[in-house]
Computed example of a mutant assay.
Amino acid sequence: MSVQVTDLAEFGEQFRTDPHPVYARLRERGPVHRVRLPAPDAHHETWLVVGHEEARAALADPRLAKDGNRIGITFLDEQLIGKYLLIADPPQHTRLRALVTRAFTARRVEALRPRIERITADLLDAMLPRGTADLVDAFAYPLPLTVISELLGIPEPDRAEFRALSSEAVAPTGAIAEREAFVRLAAYLTELIEDKRCSGPGDDLLSDLIRTTAADGDRLSPGELRGMAFLLLIAGHETTVNLITNAVHALLTHPGQLADLRADMTLLDGAVEEALRYEGPVENATFRFAAEPLEIGGTAIGRGEVVMVGLTAAHRDAARFPAPDRFDIRRDTRGHLAFGHGVHYCLGAPLARLEARIALRALLDRAPDLALAGPPGAWLPGMLMRGVRSLPVRW
């Protein structure tokens, strides 16, 4: 029996700007669909999960592999960077995560609070006298980039180039540019790790990962170290940029909610969680592969087929979140999937939340007349990230 394939490219640029109506129409027909992805992944077909219950189950289903090698596929990132958590399955994933969590502890994240507050204050000191700015360029991007760079020991002169390369890696503008970004990132991280080995590891997280040894003597290999550094650097700032930007955009386009938050800052945690649900920083989880035949939401998935779990789509499922298109900072957001679910739940979630809370509180405190100064810039290409290139604001 032939399967209906929805070509997402047919919805044009409007799908990139506002995919929610398309996902809503798909959900009306069922929780799982065969889709053809738009550029830059044009002609690539995948199963797309758009229902919340089905998405949550799929994220934790061990039959859906993250390691393409289980079905005979090796991707560009693994070839050039090495194995890391997002493309590994248990027991390899269990081993890698255990080694990383020995160094990347909750205590270490909380100890970053004063430094995050200082970086935030310095960025606002530079931005606010101007009266208007692109929030992404002046604030939302440099904050998490500086935090993760300092955490991992990335020298300041290297950060501008790293920003360009990481943006291309997560929201590629084309296949050639994407490959070049991975090649350059792999070379840079290899050199950085070797420099730290030779000069003597410092007190940064990457140095700790180099030193970390499990009770049985297990350590990260050079390739695993490179993969871990890649994941922490990319996931440690690209997603947080979008979280801060999308949260500010949502608040400024919902003045009643913004006024409520200004009047009662105890609502801040709820505002961050609702921003994660309403317009989260990751549109779709990275690909999964059926290691064996299975069913998702009544749809048969054959072994070796590709599955994409829609986080943005799941978060607008009325069966889980009533009136899902309403931005409501008092909403019960429990069960949102912005940081994933199951064994691949985001290791950096506490840091992302901490940065977003500090950033929003400081921005709203110091810019009481904050408002949009124009429409947001273009939405990021591809199906992975959900964010804009720029956000003009004034105060």
Rank of each mutant, 00 (worst) to 15 (best):
M1W: 04
S2Y: 03
V3Y: 00
D7L: 05
Q14E: 15
Q14M: 07
F15K: 06
P19Y: 03
A24D: 15
R25M: 02
V35I: 08
E45G: 05
E45T: 09
V49K: 03
L59I: 11
L59Y: 02
D67N: 15
G68D: 01
I71W: 07
I71L: 04
G72V: 08
D77M: 06
I81Y: 01
I81P: 10
I81M: 07
G82W: 02
I87C: 00
Q92E: 15
V100H: 00
T101L: 07
R102G: 09
F104D: 05
R107V: 04
A111S: 11
R118T: 14
L128E: 04
R130V: 02
G131Q: 11
T132A: 13
A138M: 02
P144Q: 08
I148M: 11
G153A: 09
E156F: 02
D158A: 14
S166T: 15
A171E: 05
P172H: 01
G174P: 06
A175G: 03
I176W: 00
A177F: 02
A177P: 07
L185H: 02
A187P: 10
A187I: 00
Y188M: 00
L189W: 04
L192D: 06
I193Y: 01
S199F: 00
D208N: 11
R211C: 14
R211K: 10
T212N: 00
A215W: 01
D216L: 06
D218P: 00
D218N: 06
S221R: 06
G223H: 04
R226Q: 10
R226M: 09
F230M: 07
L231K: 00
L233D: 02
T239R: 02
T239E: 03
T240R: 09
V241K: 07
A247F: 05
V248Y: 01
H249P: 00
H249W: 14
L258D: 12
L261N: 13
D264F: 05
T266K: 01
T266F: 10
L267R: 14
D269L: 10
D269F: 03
G270C: 11
A271H: 12
E273A: 15
E274D: 13
L276S: 09
R277E: 14
Y278Q: 08
E283K: 14
T286S: 10
F287I: 01
R288T: 08
A291M: 01
P293Y: 09
L294N: 12
I301H: 11
G304E: 03
V306F: 01
G310W: 07
A314P: 08
H315R: 08
R316H: 15
D317Q: 02
A319F: 00
R320H: 13
P322V: 14
A323L: 09
P324D: 13
P324W: 04
D325S: 12
R326D: 13
D332M: 09
D332W: 07
R334G: 15
A338V: 12
H344K: 05
Y345K: 09
A349L: 12
L351C: 10
L354C: 13
R357E: 14
A362H: 10
P368C: 13
L370N: 06
L372A: 03
P376M: 05
G377W: 08
L380N: 07
G387W: 01
R389S: 15
V393Q: 04
V393I: 15
R394Q: 13
